[in-house]
Design a protein around this nucleic acid. Structure first.
Lengths: 205, 205
DNA sequence: CTTTATTTGTACTAATCGGTAAAAAACTAA
DNA sequence: TTAGTTTTTTACCGATTAGTACAAATAAAG
């Protein structure tokens, strides 16, 4: 294993994490295919050989940027799953999505949704990777709801798969709305309506 | 005005509408930027000069394909607006979206949503045109709901803008879900939940 | 100082992108 | 048959794409 303190050779002149953050912003705005290498290198403040030496290639750079996206401090999905009740999970999920998708401090919408939705065949790996991430997130939500069902929070005949899909549809739909210019206030109104719809499903009958 | 019966010169060897239909299918699957000219010409059965002579350029071809998409017989959005009550409008909209987005006879999802969501700067015209179409559709839905509100179907304090956004979020979210591989049955379940949520907003309080 | 390892900037590659010039081909009108 | 008009085919254009070869630069190690 290499020692990160003492490394031989010319030292890297840029910060890996900051460069990846800049790459994420470019991918966030333009998507995987829409972001060209000049777009990326200019934003990252490095040139192409440095990018390839540090991150492999464009596809690996994108996947690392998405990983950073999912784990960034203001990400809302995973924390929402930790809420104590199903209702609070949904509440945090919906209002978290409303806030995050319209946050003016970064591009609108969701990278996992918009990064490679319709694309050429050469982007198929990335497209499939994002589909897998979306499915995995929905599955985690479904499992969280099944846990709540076992705890008696949901009716015995509740379809946790359908409920999870319903919530994911809200998040993904808000992502599109945000990309269309919807305001944070409007997304909050949508979240409130959606939350009422979810609440109704918590009552038996 | 030209007589469509007697036209001078070499006759066109392909059918304009069928070629446009084929172009739509390619754009539907790969998006505006993801669809290359070889992709298009191969599917349309023509070569590039014929394409440019008949449709202008790639951008104009895309916009004409979207126009065909919006007016095709199985489109659900405009017919839903003609339903007699707000509830029926929502019902047709939601279940129409569930059916259309997962229809196996064509690519999954919605061209207006996925055609140019995240893209390079060179696709900005198309991106803005699709945003405008999405906003216009939402505005039409809002106006239909305001009409229903004037007819006493909705509470006096109902926010038709928020309700329209809520319904549009369902449609656009289902489009993403379909692109992620969701089944028609699953989308119908989501539509049913969403419709219950909308129904609850029809009652005052 | 020399050697070795790594990053840097410059310049390049082959392939693909959207778009078009030019001539042959196929039709109507005279 | 001849002229005029439009479409088709082939071959090309400059620009851009992702990716890389190579040498200069910069560090630690001996």
């Amino acid at each position: 294993m290499s020692d990160s303190q003492t490394q031989v050779g010319r030292p890297r002149a840029f910060d890996l994490d900051k460069a990846l953050q800049k790459a994420l912003e470019v991918f966030w705005e333009k998507g995987y295919e829409g972001a060209s290498l000049p777009d990326l290198t200019e934003a990252m403040g490095i040139n192409k050989p440095s990018l390839y030496a540090a991150f492999g290639n464009k596809e690996q750079l994108f996947l690392k940027a998405v990983e950073l996206y999912e784990n960034r401090p203001c990400a809302f999905f995973k924390p929402a799953l930790l809420q104590p009740t199903a209702y609070q999970v949904a509440e945090h999920m919906l209002f978290g999505a409303a806030a995050a998708n319209a946050d003016p401090s970064h591009p609108k919408g969701c990278v996992v949704v918009q990064g490679a939705l319709s694309c050429s065949d050469s982007a198929n790996n990335v497209k499939q990777a994002l589909i897998e991430k979306r499915r995995n997130g929905e599955l985690q939500l479904q499992q969280r709801l099944e846990q709540a069902k076992a705890a008696g929070e949901l009716p015995a005949d509740a379809d946790c798969g359908a409920l999870a899909s319903y919530l994911v549809v809200q998040i993904q739909g808000m992502s599109i709305q945000a990309a269309s210019g919807a305001s944070a206030e409007r997304l909050q109104q949508v979240a409130a309506i959606a939350l009422q719809g979810f609440k109704a499903m918590l009552q038996p009958g």
